[in-house]
Each structure stands twice: as C-alpha cells, then as structure tokens.
Write a protein that binds this DNA or RNA. Structure first.
Lengths: 338, 338
DNA sequence: ATGAAAGCGCTAACAG
DNA sequence: CTGTTAGCGCTTTCAT
C-alpha cells in the first residue's frame, strides 16, 4: 500500500505549486486550461485524494453531524434515521451515528462530547438524561433535540404534541363506543416523558367524556419489545381484565398485544379495538391492519435538520420549540365504522 | 460562543508546557500529582476538549469506520446495523453512516472514497455495483463486503449460504407435503445476486425431489416493500394460480403476501404455507407467526468487523470469504406438524 | 494566473 | 518528570 499522495506530490509531478493544485481540486476558475489538464493528469496518476483531517483542521468545518439515538434497530428510529440521512446527504452533510442505548453514561458522554471538531452539530434524541443534565453538559456545539425527552428551554427542539395525539386516539375509541379502554406501556421503573405525555392525553380524553380513569386499565411494562406486550396482555386477559379498547404506547407493543389477543381468541376489533403509535411500515400489513398515531417523520426530520443547519451556519437566537404534525391513521384494528 | 480552548491555553493557565498537558490528557503516568491536579483544573476551567481533526492529522488514525448500506429503514439492515454499531463501539470505533440507495452513482462515490483519512475502514453491502467495479474503485483502504452482492475474490467478504438456505426452506415445505411451491421476489429488471442465489436453491430443492420447477410459480416484483408483495400475490390468486407453498425473498414481502392471502380468504398454513427470509423482529408476532430463514446477524456482524479491524491493524493476506450460519426458524405459517 | 509562506491544534521524538 | 520543536496535509492571505 503506497503512501497516500499529497498535494505537494501532485504539484511536483505537474510542475506547479501546491496552490495551483488546490485551485484545481476546488474547481476554481483562475487556472489556465493547459495547467489544469496537467494537474488533473497528475492527480489521476497518483490517485490523489484530499486528506479530510487536514482540511478540517484548517477550515474548522467537518461536514458531519452526529445522530444520537437510543437503538437503530427499533423501527421508529430506523425510519426516522432514513429521513434524516437522506436530508443530511442532500444538504451536503455526512452522518455520524452514535447509539446511546448502552446507558446513561454513554448518553452523557455523547452529549458532553469528548472531542471537539468531530462534528459540526448534533441531533439528539434524549432518553435517560434529565433536562438539567442536557443543558449543563451540552458543549459549545449546535444541538437540536428530537422527541419527548429532556428539552431545556434554551435549546432547539422538535416533537409532536403527544398529549393531543393520545387524546385523539382515545377519542376515536370512545367514538366507536368503547368505554373500557386500557393503556399498554406505562413503564414501571422510571417513566419516560413520552409515556407520561401519552398517558396524560389518555386520561384527559376519558375525563372529558365523563369516564373516570381506572388505574387497573393502565398496564405496566418492564421493557419495550413485542414479547413484553404479549406477556402483559396475556396476563391481563388471564387475570380477567375487562376491556374493549386498547391504546398502546407504540406499534411494537401493539404487535405483541394483538398476538396475545389472537392467542386467547379475543377478536380484533370486535371484542377489543387496538390503537398503536408510530405508524411503522409493517403496521399497514398486520392482521388486522393497525390503527395508529402517525407522526410525520419526514417533517420531524426536516424541522430538526433545518434548525441544526441554521445553528451551524451561525444562527444564535433562543431555543425554538417546533411541533411536527401527526394524524390518526385509521385501519382495521379500530375502524371508523364499527 | 468563546473560541475553543487549545492545549496551549491550558498550558498557559496551568503554568506548564503543552507536553505536560498532553500527558495529562492521555492519562500518562509520568506526571507529578500536584502538576496533574493543576492541569486538570485548568482543563475544567477552560472547558478544554482535544481537537479531533488535529489529532487525526498527526496520528493518521480516525477511529471511525464507514457503514455503507442501501437503506437504514429496512428492518434487516436496521437490525444488522444495531449489531455492527454495538460491536464497533465496544472495539472503540465510531460509525459513519453512508446510505447508498440513491443510486449507482452514490454507491460508486462511496466506494471510491472522495476524501482520504475520513475513516479507517469500510463495511460495505453492495447492491448495484458489479464485482469488477468494486474491485477497481476500492481505494487503499481496509474494506469488508457484506451480503450477496459483488464480491471480488481479493476482498474480504461475509455472507450466509443463500443457495443452501433456500434449499432448506423448500425442503421444509416439501416435507409438509406441499408440491406447488411458489417463489415470490424475482426482480424483473436486474435481478440481484441475492435473489439469484435464493432462486437457485429453490430450484435445486424441487429438482432433487423430482419436481419440475414451474416458471409460472416464480413471481416477479418491481420493487421491494410489503405493498408489492401484496399486489403480486393478490394478482396471482385472482389469476387462479394454484399453489400450496410460498417462499418469499424476504420477510417484508412475506408480510404483504400474507396480507393478500388473508384478504382472499386463503388460510395460512392450511391452504398455503409461507416461509420468509431474514427473521426480522416482528416476524415472531405476525398472525400467523412467520416461518423464516434466520441469518445469524450477530455472527455476520462479528465476522465482518473482526476482519475489518484486522485489516485496519495491518493484516495483508488475500481476500477471506466467510460463511455465517443461519437456521430455519419454524413458526406457525409453515409449522413442522402439518 | 501562479507561487511562497504562515499557520490550524496536536503528537512524538528528542533534550534536559 | 517536563520542555522544545518539527512536522501531519491542507487552506489562505499576500506577493508577484
């Protein structure tokens, strides 16, 4: 493996100064055609590629943004990442992927940023860190928060209105005549803001319809994942829980729940109408297809990236909080006409 | 936003030379405790963070690997990425994410690598590029290929034995007494190597059992995605296709197929037994649960990363081709006892 | 239109 | 144990 060619080597071969080679590399017009061709030939001959680190050191710009998410394998994050990656590429940025699931420590490390000059900005979906910690740790770096986790007022932030969306979902179930509506996904240990907000909307919708929320209908989970949804709903059915509607914290839990309902011969939606959350791709192909809260992932990605790039380009205003849109996507698990 | 502190600034405040500060930053033992404390205090006071680009420029090491995949939102890739990201983090590498879906050009650009010194190595899942192109474009950079796409002999490569796996899947269906077994997922335009291999295994299994492959049972698709699976299977059913078994190119197509089967009142597995491919997380929670070829994603990730890191650390041998293991995960859509 | 030279912030070899 | 110094490869004034 021959040592990588440098600007200097190209210059030597082409018989010009490095400045000229640099001009050619950057497609600057101020080079005579003949010279340009000679330089181009030398570049090809040596297989010259500009060195990224050197460039960055001098320009101070990396052209990279960090995407800090809990778990890339979770469909919602994977789908959001797809939008983010597409948009970032279109705007000329590369994406450095930081997975934060490993724990609070990792999350803290990512947020505080051990090295400077690694990326130009960070898109961060907080989970474990508190608002205060995020605010304190955040480095001197453009930062945009995504999701319902910690959101210090001073920082840019994008989310959907979780309370309103949960309320809409429950209202939909009420409209179908369901009155014993359960909520699946209350975290036992430390409830996330996400769950807290969704639960709040659930409660509001019930109360505004004169139904007293029944805490027995709020089902706790120990983990996310379909297996947990299945376990908890199986337990509820076997324990004789009486319910005719079910709002799940997310689609994945809903899949597990539906699997449990099927296994116990409970008909969906006849006996229990089910609503999920996230509208991940497969939700339109389950049996029955899943009614779900569909956050506009593309809009979330666009808003987040726009704000981040504005910050990177020097915007200095106070923290901006943007709400992305969502809709209730009605499918067979809780159809309109039932 | 005050200008980032440099080694030199810390040194000035602490009243030592930059070498000493560097020693402290690197936790080198050869610093007197008193000095160390003073330096630490200065670092904290200035909020000093070492500059990544400068470090890289001088060490020539980036501590990053590129992960070049077609589409991160596709569950199989998302799940594989999760393993890769976990392992990379454990080995001290960051992951730069490069999405190649946009087209052959993007794929070519990613493989050829515009800049040098951006990453230490590349994990690449080829789709559109040919073996020859990959071999020609590959830069002077450690490179490991994943999947069934182009795989020049000279380069490291990890995959599962797709022919054998497809054969196993079809054998399983034959064992269940199915004889009219269809294959869903032949690409009309330019079939990928992946599909070609799976189709080959399908054919082999039929022939070894004395069944003449019927080209009418090989169903073409124009795109991936559940909608396409649904469309094609609906068309086949409506066109009167006679089949009792179905091997799908991947789980996502299988979801669409199952949705179409349900819609037409075709019972799974009674009327048609279905087998998917990839064993993505939700496959265990569909109705019915999906029998599928389950590649050992963790093993794929481990083998790939191990080889890549060996190359990064200087290994120079010829291209190594490794087969990761797989198993047929039997679930309700094509159960053993049927 | 092209060249010479001064750093960007850090590491590491070499002195002391 | 600590300081001095020479680059890493590139961009960018400032001359010519």
């Amino acid at each position: 493996m021959m040592p990588t060619a440098r600007l200097k080597d190209v210059a030597a071969i082409a018989g010009v100064s490095i400045k000229t080679v640099s001009n050619v590399v950057h497609d600057r017009p101020c080079v005579r055609p003949a010279t340009r061709d000679r330089v181009r030939a030398a570049i090809a001959e040596l297989g010259y590629r500009p060195n990224a680190s050197a460039r960055r050191l001098v320009t101070g710009r990396t052209g990279m943004i960090a995407l800090a998410l809990p778990e890339i394998n979770v469909p919602y994050f994977a789908e959001l990442s797809r939008h983010l990656a597409d948009l970032a590429a279109a705007r000329g940025y590369r994406v450095l992927f930081e997975q934060t699931i490993t724990g609070v420590d990792v999350e803290r490390t990512v947020v505080s940023g051990v090295e400077a000059g690694l990326v130009d900005g960070v898109l961060y979906h907080p989970v474990a860190l508190t608002t205060r910690e995020v605010a304190e740790l955040r480095q001197h770096l453009p930062f945009v928060l995504v999701g319902e986790g910690a959101a210090p007022l001073g920082m840019d932030h994008v989310m959907i209105d979780n309370v309103a969306a949960a309320r809409d979902a429950v209202r939909h179930l009420l409209r179908l005549g369901r009155t014993r509506i359960a909520f699946l996904g209350h975290e036992t240990r430390s409830p996330t803001n996400t769950t807290r907000r969704r639960l709040m909307g659930y409660q509001l919708a019930l109360e505004e319809n004169g139904i007293a929320p029944d805490s027995d209908l709020v089902l706790a989970i120990d983990s996310f994942g379909p297996d947990e949804g299945q376990r908890v709903i199986s337990g509820a059915i076997e324990g004789g829980m009486d319910f005719d509607g079910l709002l799940c914290r997310d689609d994945i839990l809903a899949f597990g729940a539906m699997s449990a309902l099927h296994a116990h011969g409970v008909r969906i939606p006849d006996d229990v109408a089910v609503v999920g959350w996230d509208d991940i791709a497969v939700s339109a192909y389950t049996e029955p297809t899943l009614t779900t809260i569909s956050p506009d992932k593309h809009e979330i990605a666009t808003l987040a990236l726009d704000m981040l790039i504005e910050r990177i380009e020097g915007h200095h205003g106070p923290g901006r909080h943007r709400l992305a849109s969502y809709r209730l996507r009605v499918r067979a698990s809780a159809p309109d006409d039932h």
